[in-house]
Structures are given as C-alpha cells and as structure tokens.
C-alpha cells in the first residue's frame, strides 16, 4: 500500500505546483476534454510567460459544466484568484438542465478560442452538397439521421438552426446523440447515419483521407485551407461557433475585475499563447469587455430560441 501512496503522491507532486497560487482555474469537465485542455494550456502559458507565478487547475466534471459552475459560484464569490473555463456548450446545458446557476452569476472576462462546426457525409453517400442534404431533409426530415455529440450540445443546436433556416420543423429532425467524438465518427465512417456534425478539426483528417465529404462549415467567412463553402454561402443563414471562454468569480470589485482582464489580455498577447494555439489547432477568437458581453447575451438568446424550437427546453 505504501507503494500506491508514494506513486500517487509522486503523480500529484509532478502535476500540481507546490504553493503561492496566483490563479486557480476550474475546468468544469473531466481531464482530456476541450475545457480541460484550455485550462491546462492557460496554466502552462501563464506560468511560462510570468503572468502568474503559479497556476493550479482543478476538474469538477458533470452535466455540461453546470456542476462545476454551481460549485464555482458557491465557493469562489469575491475571490479574484479563482477562474473558470466555460463555453458555448455550457449555455445549452444551463438551459436544458434548468440549472439554478447561470452565466449571469459569474463575471465573464473574455472569449479565448473557438471551433467552427462542420457538416459531413460518408464518402459513399450520394449527397454532394449541402443543398442536396437539405432537399432530403425537406422531403422527409425523419429519413435524414444526424450523428453528433450530446443532446442539446453545439452539434445538435447546429442541426436545429439549419433545419429552421431551411424551413423544416426542428422538432422533426432525427438527431442521434453519441457519447464522445469517437463513437459519432465511427457511425459516420461506417455509413450508419446520413450525415454528421462536429468541429472542423475532428473531421479534418478524415476529409483529407477521403473517407468523409465536407459539405459546409459554420463560420461567417470561408476558412483558409478548408475546401468547403460556409452554410451561409449555401443559402442558409446559420453561423455557429463553439467558443470557449474564461470567467472570474462573482462579486468582484471593478479593480479586481480589471486586474484579471489585464492578465488575460497579457496571456492573449503573448507569443507563448500564439504558439500554443497553433500546436493545438485552435483558432484565436479573443473578444473581451463590452463587445464580449453583447455577443454572449446574443448567443444565449439564440440558443434558448433554438432549444425551445427543437423541444429540449420547455
């Protein structure tokens, strides 16, 4: 048993810097996901660039981040050293889970990165364009099965928005939720479903290898290096970004908030962050201050409408 204990103590000692924490970042998800990755990338760059002498990451997984969010609000109020990573998925999860704690209970600081959504079909499919796919959807919404991540998540919302833009009843869409990107991709590659939705990055290698056909991306402009039209260009007014953000604790003074915002701005401006984003393949979608607040409010409103349309929020 001693071995066990030493082993774990060793693992913990390696992973967690000893003390003098300037920031504690909560990743409201299990290790390995996007939010955890964002938190750990911030940890590394903030320490390396000397923005904070010591940064600790803690994971509180559960229910699309709402478990972590509730704990963060309860435990961290008024503490300027506490940060939480969040994102678009959280917006949906707060609504579908009827979470008592919302993003209005924290102090959003900045949007940091974001993924664009992609709509694909298996290479063997006879569907060539987004137009073809929407034709099928209009003819019989149930006959078009969509593979994607969890119900009410960004993938589901994307399909709902597309259906709405195409004039199809969003409650009729046949969205098949898979747990984890791997299972959904396997279903698309194995020709089990009509189409699939996930981030562009998830599908990029498959598209390159010719096992999937990329029909459209959800960004406002065409993406460099990606040979596909935007959903907007294809004629449907849908723009979705699966963004990730950083927020501070509730109940901060203006000075405290400004200090955190300044540190995050320093992070964003650093060379380390730029190269980190490049390694990870994340787009820099930094947006802070009043502009972010406006965008956040707009995203929450759109999401609530589409989740009501799909029938996930009553």
């Amino acid at each position: 048993m001693k071995h066990t204990f030493l082993g774990v103590a060793f693992a913990a000692a390696l992973a967690v810097p000893a003390f003098a924490q300037d920031y504690t970042i909560m990743a409201p998800a299990n290790p390995g996901g996007g939010w955890d990755g964002t938190a750990r990338a911030m940890q590394e760059v903030m320490q390396a660039e000397g923005i904070a002498p010591s940064v600790e990451v803690i994971n509180v997984p559960g229910a699309g981040g709402t478990v972590g969010l509730a704990q963060f609000v309860a435990d961290s109020a008024g503490d300027p050293t506490k940060l939480i990573v969040g994102g678009y998925v959280m917006v949906g999860a707060i609504l579908t889970n009827a979470s008592p704690v919302t993003l209005a209970d924290v102090t959003p600081i900045a949007r940091l990165t974001g993924d664009t959504q992609a709509i694909v079909v298996p290479a063997a499919s006879d569907i060539q364009t987004l137009g073809d796919l929407v034709e099928k959807l209009k003819a019989d919404p149930g006959a078009v099965s969509w593979a994607g991540g969890s119900a009410g998540g960004t993938d589901h919302i994307t399909v709902g928005l597309l259906a709405k833009a195409a004039g199809v009843d969003p409650t009729k869409i046949n969205y098949v939720a898979f747990s984890g990107g791997g299972e959904a991709m396997a279903a698309i590659l194995g020709n089990q479903v009509t189409a699939g939705v996930s981030s562009v990055g998830e599908f990029a290698e498959q598209v390159k290898a010719g096992t999937m056909r990329l029909l459209a991306v959800s960004s406002a402009e065409r993406m460099p290096g990606i040979d596909a039209p935007t959903i907007k260009e294809a004629g449907f007014d849908v723009v979705v970004q699966n963004w990730r953000m950083i927020a501070a604790a509730p109940g901060l003074s203006d000075e405290q908030k400004a200090k955190v915002a300044a540190d995050i701005e320093k992070l964003n401006a650093s060379a380390g962050w730029t190269s980190m984003l490049e390694t990870k393949g994340w787009a820099n979608t930094y947006l802070a201050g009043a502009a972010f607040d406006t965008q956040l409010a707009a995203d929450i409103a759109t999401t609530e409408t589409v989740l009501r349309d799909i029938g996930l929020v009553k």
Partner: peptide, 30 residues
C-alpha cells in the same frame, strides 16, 4: 481505432490523442 482512424473510444484513448497532438501529430486515417 485510435491509430488507424484517430477515433478515441475510451477516456484514456482520448487523452492519449491529446498527447499525440502536443507533438503536432493528427491521428487519423493517414
């Protein structure tokens, strides 16, 4: 599936995928 298709089917595989990415590897069919 992880090495041939880049499909992480367990939590550990998903994290190993993150490990690949830190070396600039994109697991996938290629």
């Amino acid at each position: 599936p992880l090495l041939t298709l880049g499909l992480p089917t367990t939590a550990t595989a998903a994290i190993m995928l993150a490990g690949f990415q830190q070396f600039g590897l994109q697991p996938g069919p290629l």
